[in-house]
């Protein structure tokens, strides 16, 4: 029977999130490369270790899935005594395709579920990171403060048009 530690490592290693840990590997990664499949923005390294030192309560980000017990009273109604889950990575619960026909059909088939309104992966991470950074008054909150744009991103945002015409040029 696999240990919890292995399960956690396995869950973290799935897909786009890669994990780097020192030789004395624990289940908790020190840094995580995010946005690996980004089309408009570059991948970047997230300093997990620093956040553990700063925040301490794992549940602030990981909800009821790991570490300290959940604090949010709304979650505690059900997860007060939840034991840590096998999957703790963001993408383990938050879908990267929250609005695909498949996801929508799945949701409709399980209307009894409480977590009907679960955010997708991109939304959940931005809300979690930027939300906390703004609340704490520290940490990056602008798009390129975390992930610089690539050339495709510059084209997408028509970066070369900046100030080409006054922003309020009349239509007619």
């Amino acid at each position: 029977m696999p240990s919890t530690k292995l399960l956690i490592l396995g869950a973290l290693a799935i897909g786009a999130i890669s994990v780097t840990s020192p030789a004395t590997a624990t289940a908790v990664p020190d840094s995580i490369t995010l946005n690996q499949n980004g089309k408009l923005y570059q991948p970047f390294s997230f300093d997990h270790a620093q956040h553990i030192l700063l925040i301490k309560e794992c549940s602030d980000c990981h909800h009821h899935t790991t570490g300290t017990l959940v604090l949010d009273p709304n979650c505690a109604r059900c997860h007060q005594n939840s034991s840590p889950t096998a999957v703790v990575s963001c993408k383990g619960c938050h879908s990267s395709t929250p609005f695909s026909p498949e996801t929508l059909a799945e949701k409709r088939a399980h209307k009894e579920r409480f977590h009907q309104d679960k955010m997708g992966l991109k939304g959940a991470m931005h809300e979690n990171c930027i939300g906390c950074h703004k609340k704490m008054g520290t940490g990056p909150a602008g798009c390129q403060d975390c992930h610089p744009r690539n050339a495709k991103g510059d084209a997408f945002y028509s970066a070369d048009r900046k100030g080409a015409k006054p922003a309020h040029a009349k239509e007619h």
Partner: peptide, 11 residues
């Protein structure tokens, strides 16, 4: 093409 870039907040 827009009058100014899509990250221009002056709009």
């Amino acid at each position: 093409e827009p009058d100014t870039s899509f990250d221009d907040k002056s709009v």
